[in-house]
Design a binder for these strands. Structure first.
Length: 515
RNA sequence: GCUCCGGUCGUCUAGCGGUUAGGACGUCGCCCUUUCACGGCGAAGGUCGCGGGUUCGAAUCCCGUCCGGAGUACCA
């Protein structure tokens, strides 16, 4: 039997990194086994429905390279794939009828107030909380009929068997057991007629032939309910794979205070899909051996439930950034430039960089964005120049967004001279004369078309000053004049890229600042 | 409160009764070098949460305990 897995998000919010990892495991597992990966939308809660959510799930997942074999956006043999539509099509009705008839489920007419009261009583008396029967589990048929005749609202609950041991086999944690007396009777059908998650997910998994269920460990406590439901139907349990949660630096569930949690925000920062996947997969999964940096194909080939970790994992942004840097260095400059350009065309990236957010470490985002736009603009007007700048900054950045500020000095007409750099290097007594020398040489037509030409220009001056094997005193002030900074690409390389005119302008301006 | 899950360097992890407890990120140092970075080399960092067992021998098996986390809805 072929492997069938499903990613079944609730369309209430945005795609965050925890959900991404679950989706990724579904994807890797199904690919590894040549099975199918299904997208199912669990929209049984009408009050929390967010219409933009589903679109974000599909498009963001597509961005990282996760496609589905079946789903609401592509169809499939088990359509529809939205639970609200499945409910409307009456797909759940026969199953709930079957449960009612076989005595595995019952109607309960408790009001929300009555349930609240019950819970409070249980808590005060240190009892397990939940609905363990109430007035309706074993109510006489006449009583039920009367309540129905009075038009009371009711839900349908599962009659969890008492005095038994409920067992599930978890692929990561092994056998998990519960005394069925502590498992309360879950609502299967709500008063509004919609199925609950518990009911819809189990029925759909069965109808869709799901073989393995990957979900977060927050589902473990409700697993016995699902097992009891499956047993009531007489079905076989799928293989349960309860993945550990991803936490922030403080060990609590990942949230905004730990940094960006929305996957799209990582795209906006210029994190690439491949390293993002690589990194997220490795939180809670060890491919075996010392493998870490892997391609998508490597991950598909290596993926095995056995490598999944039971303990929670922290999201270490430093490591993500490192992996992204590795990926950037492995790309070709044209690819990188194209990626930067498309980043500037992304509506979400534009929105992301339009507002400062201290929590996310965005202190002066508008500068980053403007620099990025300047680079993208140059890619259109002078692609070779933009490419040359990318080449020199490639090994100095870790995200696509970094390229903006890193390449800024190449793009602007007047570089902003760093005060500290100026104080340190422009105060040397030989500097005015040295700049005059370079200006003179450049005006006289000294060839500066390659980096070794540029090196010759600078070294000529150094040698003339007697700095034979040490051009540093000449290099540093020149770098500051040309870039405004003390850190950056090799001076002779950047000189060759800037070219004669830009060098002249910058040197003259720097010279002017000296008096 | 009740139920459940988890616990190896700061972080992600390897490990499946015998290892100097290995790798990666981060940190620090050295080399490379005009700076930063990249790259190379190296170092620090772990009484395997703690306490008892079992065993010739335990991070690995058993029990207890502590700590952390999750669930406890007509939300998923």
């Amino acid at each position: 039997m072929s492997v069938r897995v499903r990613f079944a998000p609730s369309p209430t919010g945005l795609l965050h990194v925890g959900a991404l990892r679950t989706a990724l495991y579904d994807h890797l597992f199904s690919q590894h086994h040549g099975g199918q990966n299904i997208l199912r939308i669990e929209d049984t809660d009408r009050t929390r429905y967010n219409p933009e959510s589903e679109e974000e799930f599909v498009s963001t997942l597509a961005w990282v390279g996760i496609e589905f074999d079946e789903g609401p956006h592509v169809g499939g043999p088990y359509a529809p794939y939205r639970q609200s539509e499945r409910q409307a099509a009456g797909l759940y009705q026969p199953w709930i009828d079957q449960l009612l008839e076989s005595g595995h489920a019952y109607r309960a007419f408790d009001t929300p107030e009555e349930l609240d009261e019950m819970r409070t009583f249980q808590q005060v008396n240190k009892m397990p909380t939940g609905y363990f029967g109430g007035d309706w589990r074993d109510a006489l048929p006449e009583k039920v009929a009367q309540a129905e005749a009075e038009g009371k609202r009711s839900v349908i609950r599962l009659k969890v068997p008492r005095g038994q041991t409920i067992t599930i086999e978890d692929a990561i944690r092994g056998r998990l057991e519960w005394d069925s007396d502590v498992v309360d009777d879950p609502v299967l059908i709500k008063a509004d007629g919609m199925p609950t998650y518990h009911f819809a997910a189990i029925v759909d998994d069965h109808m869709m032939g799901i073989t393995h269920v990957f979900r977060g460990e927050e589902w473990i406590p409700s697993a016995p309910k699902h097992a009891a439901l499956i047993a009531a139907f007489g079905w076989e349990q799928p293989v349960w794979v309860h993945c550990s949660v991803i936490t922030g630096a403080d060990g609590k569930k990942l949230s905004k205070r730990h940094g960006a949690t929305r996957v799209l925000d990582y795209a906006a920062m210029g994190i690439l899909p491949e390293p993002l996947k690589n990194f997220v997969a490795l939180i809670g999964w060890a491919p075996g051996g010392d493998r870490e940096v892997m391609s998508r194909a490597d991950m598909v080939e290596a993926f095995d439930i056995k490598g999944l970790q039971a303990s929670p994992g922290r999201f270490d942004k430093e490591k993500l950034t490192w992996m992204n840097g590795v990926a950037i260095r492995a790309m070709s400059p044209p690819e990188l430039l194209d990626a930067v350009v498309s980043l500037t065309e992304s509506a979400h990236a534009q929105a992301y960089w339009s507002e400062a957010d201290e929590e996310l470490g965005k202190l002066a985002p508008e500068k980053t964005w403007e620099a990025l736009l300047a680079l993208a603009e140059r890619a259109r007007t002078d692609r070779d120049y933009a490419l040359a700048a990318i080449v020199l900054e490639q090994e100095r950045v870790t995200t696509l967004a970094d390229f903006g500020l890193a390449c800024e000095f190449f793009m602007v007409d007047e570089v902003e001279i760093n005060v500290k750099a100026k104080d340190k290097w422009f105060t040397k007594d030989y500097v005015p004369e040295m700049f005059d020398y370079f200006i003179h040489e450049l005006e006289s037509g000294f060839n500066v078309s390659t980096n070794s030409d540029c090196e010759e220009l600078v070294r000529n001056y150094a040698i003339q000053r007697g700095w034979v094997d040490n051009a540093a005193p000449a290099v540093h002030p020149t770098r500051v004049a040309l870039t405004g900074k003390t850190a950056g690409p090799a001076l002779f390389d950047l000189m060759a890229v800037l070219g004669r005119e830009r060098m002249l302008a910058r040197l003259q301006r720097a010279r002017g600042m000296l008096r």
